[in-house]
Amino acid sequence: MNGALLEVANLEAGYGPVEVLRNVHFSVASGEIVVILGANGAGKTTTLRAISGMIGCRGSVVFAGQSIRGRRPDQLVAAGIAHVPQGRGTITDLTVEENLRIGAYCRRDGEVDADIARWFDVFPRLGERATQPAGSMSGGEQQMLAIARALMARPTLLLLDEPSLGLAPLVTKELFAQLATVNAETGTAVLVVEQNANLALAIAHRGYVLEVGELVASGSAEELMTDEAIRKAYLGF
């Protein structure tokens, strides 16, 4: 586990008296795509919210060699973690371009405009809609915008919360293909939590399975895809 970008150990988190996560351990290496699979209510969203400082947690969360537990979300963005929350998390009253600018809020360099042009190249539909309010776009376009917005921070780790939620299958497929490309080109590590195991495992290097707050299985994407029990429970074939 030496050299892991993100190292989570003994993670426990919940809402008030309700404990959602128990004793969760996992890691993400630099440049790696890791998926956490699980059904509704398994604690996937809670895991990401605990990492990015949106809810309190116990245990250890170490990012790039430093403990980040208890830091605010905006401080973590500056440190290199960008979180795309469930339900897109675009800022609907701002235009597409303004959303991208907000994504670069933590940056002080002069390359923001160049990065915007770059993501407009990768996601041409965003470029066509640069001056439209984000809220006027379709679900798939908003999800692309949310991801591009997160990449504007030039993160070393991208957290994605169920990017396929509410999207048509074809759109989801395109989105995951683009994620794989972005990962290969920028070397940004990706931690994605998903219910759609097929698509997520297709682009992931490794995966974990979360069941009512506890990790019950882990392995390479191939191992998970060929594991009989996991296939039955999460892949449906």
Partner: peptide
Amino acid sequence: TRLGLAMRAVASNEESSALAGVPV
């Protein structure tokens, strides 16, 4: 201004703004 953009972002959606790196 960058400040004004951040203020409009916070006015529209506090949580997403925080996740985008804005000190709400």
